[in-house]
Design a protein around this nucleic acid. Structure first.
Lengths: 155, 155
DNA sequence: CAAAATAGTTTGCAATGCAAATAATTGCTG
DNA sequence: CAGCAATTATTTGCATTGCAAACTATTTTG
């Protein structure tokens, strides 16, 4: 203690470790599923709510529609996603998971999330409080209170 | 309280917020500097230690040499990095920052790091301990103790 | 000295990501 | 209701990242 400057750097190093670990979990998920990060992300979103229009998917992924079209193209090629023209608004496309797509979504690992949930359960009350308060503070430091949480993925 | 399950999800949501905030800081850095994430990362590493061989840079960035060659190509084109054949081992190339490159490295924002350091200084002792312990625990949960910290970047 | 290892590069490939232009449809406005 | 504006998805063109495999030059090792 007292040596706050050193601890400060240690905290940041630990944050970096967390980053990299999560990155590696999602790299692993890519190997397991044969899908890239964005592809897996799209599949997961479709597993949550379906059908989903292309523009809505783009909004949820904070990506340009043109980018999402490419991702959906490749998922459609793999037979995981289906496109259907909406009957109400014939401009829009409704995206759904195929049976195979649902299987993939169900089987694909929860990236780091599962790991974290299990780990959190094993903590005692004091440790749990440390993490709870620590994360709240980290959010405050970054001014990120108003940011809507979105899946973390490795690049 | 006692509702541990809810808090658990809240913790993960906060981690996601942290992720996204840092992502946005680095996106901003890209706009400010006109460099992409990997390019900025390479510049920062070269600002730390110089000269640096291509293979060493690749190792530090956990990237394939062929990938780094491309990145260095573009930095050289922009006049930020210089290549020099080593005299001791004529196979290897020594990378250095040009004057301009040094200026860019100095001026380019520390991504999220500066933000965090300033923020950490403003915390009282109890808060500081929460973050310190919280991050340690997070690292343990992910089994990331042995991971060498590397810059976090969006991408 | 010959063979193997190392360093950087080139080439070819796939994926992400954006901007701008396009076609089809819907909504709005006078 | 006719016409214009907005929305939706797509296409095209471009830059970047990232890897693997082949290649050249150099060094090290047997």
């Amino acid at each position: 203690m007292g040596n706050r400057a050193g601890t400060r750097l240690e905290i940041i190093d630990n944050l970096r470790r967390v980053f990299q670990a999560i990155n590696e979990y999602s790299k692993n998920a890519e190997k397991v599923t044969g899908l890239t990060g964005p592809q897996l992300w799209a599949i997961k979103l479709l597993a949550d709510t379906s059908p989903l229009r292309v523009s809505d998917l783009a909004r949820q992924m904070y990506l340009h529609p043109a980018t999402v079209v490419g991702i959906v193209d490749r998922l459609e090629l793999k037979g995981l996603v289906a496109r259907n023209r909406s009957t109400q608004d014939r401009r829009s496309i409704e995206l759904t998971l195929t049976e195979n797509g649902q299987k993939v979504a169900a089987k694909s690992p929860e990236v780091a999330q599962g790991m974290l949930i299990k780990g959190l359960d094993r903590l005692n009350q004091e440790e749990f409080t440390h993490i709870e308060e620590g994360m709240k503070l980290m959010v405050r430091l970054l001014g990120a209170e108003n940011i809507k949480p979105q899946p973390m993925h490795g690049k």
